[in-house]
Simulated assay, not measured.
Amino acid sequence: MKKPQKEKKEKKLTPNDILKYEIANELGLMDKINARGWKSLTAKESGRIGGLIAKANRDRVKNKNTEKDSSDIVKGIDKT
């Protein structure tokens, strides 16, 4: 006897999830993901997605810090 399949709940996407989907789409992997799921990706493909997510997060933090530093200078607060 087969077990009944569990219904998948709709997961609310986080900003990192959205970024992951965008990167997978840019790399041309969405057809594979839609057909067979995330588990069908190779280690190389998963690593590439993870690396690009990490890079985007680093860039976002760096830009946030740069904006904060430049706004402090505009206000007349020089941190040097």
Score class of each variant (00 low, 15 high):
Met1Tyr: 12
Met1Arg: 14
Met1Phe: 12
Met1Pro: 13
Lys3Gly: 13
Lys3Arg: 15
Pro4Tyr: 06
Gln5Tyr: 13
Lys6Ser: 08
Lys6Ile: 11
Lys6Gln: 10
Glu7Lys: 12
Glu7Phe: 12
Glu7Tyr: 11
Lys8Asp: 10
Lys8Ser: 10
Lys9Asp: 10
Lys9Thr: 11
Lys9Pro: 05
Glu10Leu: 15
Lys11Met: 11
Lys12Ser: 09
Lys12Ala: 10
Lys12Cys: 02
Thr14Ser: 13
Thr14Pro: 01
Pro15Ala: 05
Asn16Tyr: 14
Asn16Trp: 12
Asp17Gly: 06
Asp17Ser: 07
Asp17Pro: 05
Ile18Cys: 03
Ile18Ala: 05
Ile18Gly: 00
Leu19Lys: 04
Lys20Cys: 11
Tyr21Phe: 13
Tyr21Thr: 09
Tyr21Trp: 13
Glu22Trp: 04
Ile23Cys: 01
Ile23Leu: 03
Ala24Ser: 06
Ala24Asn: 00
Asn25Pro: 04
Leu27Asp: 01
Gly28His: 02
Gly28Glu: 02
Leu29Cys: 03
Met30Asp: 06
Met30Pro: 02
Met30Gln: 11
Asp31Thr: 10
Asp31Val: 10
Asp31Tyr: 09
Lys32Arg: 08
Ile33Cys: 01
Asn34Ile: 13
Asn34Ser: 14
Ala35Asn: 08
Arg36Pro: 02
Gly37Asp: 06
Trp38Ala: 03
Trp38Tyr: 13
Trp38Cys: 03
Trp38Glu: 04
Trp38Gln: 05
Lys39Val: 09
Lys39Thr: 11
Ser40Trp: 02
Ser40Ala: 12
Leu41Tyr: 00
Leu41Val: 02
Thr42Trp: 00
Lys44Asp: 15
Lys44Tyr: 12
Glu45Met: 01
Glu45Trp: 01
Glu45Gln: 13
Ser46Ile: 07
Ser46Ala: 15
Gly47Ala: 05
Gly47Pro: 00
Gly47Gln: 02
Gly47Leu: 04
Arg48Val: 11
Gly51Thr: 03
Leu52Asn: 03
Lys55Tyr: 09
Lys55Pro: 02
Lys55Glu: 15
Ala56Val: 06
Ala56Ser: 07
Asn57Ile: 09
Asn57Gln: 13
Asp59Tyr: 10
Asp59Ser: 10
Val61Cys: 05
Val61Phe: 08
Lys62Tyr: 06
Lys62Cys: 05
Lys62Trp: 04
Lys64Phe: 08
Lys64Glu: 13
Asn65Thr: 09
Asn65Gln: 10
Glu67Val: 10
Glu67Leu: 12
Glu67Pro: 01
Asp69Gly: 01
Asp69Arg: 11
Asp69Lys: 13
Asp69Ala: 11
Ser70Trp: 15
Ser71Lys: 12
Asp72Lys: 15
Asp72Met: 14
Ile73Lys: 07
Ile73Glu: 03
Ile73Val: 09
Val74Cys: 06
Val74Leu: 12
Lys75Gly: 03
Lys75Thr: 04
Ile77His: 06
Lys79Thr: 07
Thr80Met: 02
